[in-house]
Design a protein around this nucleic acid. Sequence first.
DNA 1: ATGGTGGTTCTACCA
Length: 256
Amino acid sequence: MKIAIWNVNSVNQRLPLLLQWMSDNKPDVVMLQELKCMDEKFPRTEIEAAGYSAEVFGQKSWNGVAILSKHPMTEVMRGLPGDDSDIQSRYIEATVQGVRVCGLYLPNGNPVNSEKYPYKLAWMDRLAARARILLKTEEPVVLGGDYNIIPEDRDCHDPAVWAGDALFLPQSRQKFRTLLNLGLTEAFRALNDNAGEYTFWDYQAGAWPRNHGIRIDHFLLSPQALDRLDNCHIDKTPRSWEKASDHVPVILTLRD
DNA sequence: ATGGTGGTTCTACCA
C-alpha cells in the first residue's frame, strides 16, 4: 500500500498539480494538509473523477486536512481529541484496508512569544495521548503529515538560522521525541541517514534554488506498520513545477 | 536588521 502526505498550501490553487502528481504516482492513499477551504469548497468532483474518495475536515482560510483513498474508508474521525474549545481543523483519521491512517497538520507555533507556541505544545501533548490509544490497538497505525518540527540539526540547512524558531526549539523537539519514545518510528529516518533531505523550501529568498530547506513532513509508524515498511522517500519533483506548493510529498510504501 | 513570496481575503493574518 502506497500512502502519501502533502501540504498543498491551498488545495484549490494546487489542484492541477495535485491531479498530475496523483496520476504520475498512483498512491492508494493521499493525506493532504493546508486545504485552506471549507468542506463545500473542496474540489470533490475532480478528486472523485481521478478515482479517489475523499474524507475532508476543512476550515475557512486556514488549516484543513483530508484523506483521499482509492479503497473504502471506514471509522472516520475528525478533530484531535482533548480540547473541545479547539476549532482548528488539523486532524483526521480513517481505516483503509486494515491500516489506521491519521493525517495531521501540527501547529506552526510562531511567534514563540505569543499564545501560538503554548497552543503548539499543548497540541503535541494531545497528539501523544491519541498515539497512546492507537498504539494499544496493536494494529498498523500511520501518523503522517506536516509536523512543523525539524527533528535534528541534519534536517535543516543551517541550524543557527532556526535556533529560536518554534519548529526547532529544544522543547518542540523534545515533544517530538516523546512521540518516538511511545514506540513510534519515523519511517524516513529508519531507512535514510543522510543530512540535507528536505520537504519544505520557503518561497522567499531563493530557498529552493539554494536548497535552503527543512525536513518537517514525517510519517510515524506503530510497530505493526513498521513491520510492513518497504520504502519511504521524498519526492522533490513537484517543487520545481509552476505554481508549486512550498512543501513536497513524502511517499510511504507498506508491504501487503 | 530587513526583506524576500505566496495564500486567503479585503486588511491584516498566516506561513
